[in-house]
Simulated assay, not measured.
Amino acid sequence: MAKRVQVVLNEDVLSLGKDGDLVEVAPGYARNFLLPFGKALPVTPAVMKQVQHRRAKKAEQEAALKQEALDFQTALVTIGRFTVKKQVGEDGVLFGTVTNGDVAEVILEATKKEIDRREITVPEIHSTGKYKVQVKLHSEVTAEINLEVSSY
Rank of each mutant, 00 (worst) to 15 (best):
M1K: 15
R4Q: 09
V5K: 04
V8N: 03
V8E: 03
N10D: 11
D12N: 03
L14K: 00
D19N: 00
V23Q: 04
V25G: 08
A26G: 10
L34I: 10
L35D: 00
F37G: 08
G38M: 14
K39Y: 04
K39A: 11
P42H: 13
V43G: 06
T44E: 13
P45Y: 04
P45A: 14
A46P: 09
K49D: 04
K49V: 13
Q50Y: 03
H53V: 07
H53E: 03
K57A: 05
K58I: 09
K58F: 02
K58D: 05
A59C: 07
A63N: 08
A64S: 06
K66D: 02
Q67S: 08
Q67D: 07
E68Q: 15
A75Y: 06
A75D: 09
G80V: 03
R81F: 10
K85H: 15
K86N: 01
G89E: 08
E90W: 01
E90Y: 03
D91N: 13
G92H: 05
V93I: 11
L94W: 03
F95W: 10
F95C: 04
G96Q: 06
T99M: 14
N100W: 13
N100G: 06
D102G: 11
E105D: 15
I107A: 09
L108R: 13
A110T: 13
R118P: 02
E119C: 01
E119S: 13
E119K: 15
I120T: 12
V122P: 01
V122N: 04
I125F: 10
G129P: 14
G129N: 01
K130T: 02
Q134F: 01
V135W: 06
V135F: 10
L137R: 02
H138W: 07
E140A: 09
E140L: 03
V141F: 07
L147V: 15
V149R: 13
S150R: 12
S150H: 01
